[in-house]
């Protein structure tokens, strides 16, 4: 197997693909949004329970490929207990990680770094960021489903 492939499909990715964390509907969520990747037909729904500017709970439904599903699962873990005001810099940091690898270092990515291998596969960046774009839509309170296109 090539090194690029090993970097992309790390054990942690498989772990979160096969046993996604926080994948369930959430009734009465304070924020929610749907995201769609028209390239592959994948859909994801993100739910947030926000109280006093803090993400108390977060869940998702849907997913798709290993990258999209694992990314959504890892995202939910990274968000729990985090202040809403920190989310934007975390997303930016993550986006750099999966595109150019140049992380400005404004936020600690922790386990999210398992997705760094995506940058060698530009066609898969949208898989890795679908849940994050959907998160942004949920925070912005958009009613129309967000698309990666």
């Amino acid at each position: 197997m090539s090194g690029e492939l090993r970097d992309l499909y790390q054990q942690l990715i498989f772990d979160h693909y096969k046993a996604p964390r926080n994948r369930h509907p959430m009734h009465g969520a304070s924020h929610e949004a749907e995201g769609h990747n028209p390239l592959c037909g994948d859909n994801v729904k993100v739910y947030l329970e926000i109280e006093d500017g803090v993400i108390r709970d977060v869940a998702f439904e849907g997913g798709g490929c290993a990258i999209a599903t694992a990314s959504a699962s890892l995202m939910t873990e990274a968000l729990k207990g985090r202040k809403v005001e920190e989310v934007q810099s975390l997303f930016e940091e993550f986006h750099h990680l999966v595109t150019d690898g140049e992380a400005p270092g404004r936020a600690e990515l922790g386990k999210l770094e398992a997705l760094a291998g995506v940058r060698e596969f530009p066609a898969r960046v949208k898989c890795a960021t679908l849940a994050w774009h959907t998160l942004n839509a949920a925070l912005a309170g958009r009613e129309r489903p967000v698309s990666t296109e």
């Binding site: 197997m1 499909y9 990258i67 898969r124």
Partner: peptide, 26 residues
């Protein structure tokens, strides 16, 4: 247990070019 995009990416690393997705026939 595998999404077509994952299959496509793995094949790509072996030089095998296929299409993965809905093929504009949703």
């Amino acid at each position: 247990g595998m999404h077509p995009h994952d299959v496509g990416t793995i094949l790509d690393t072996l030089g095998v070019a296929i299409r993965a997705g809905h093929h504009c026939a949703m």
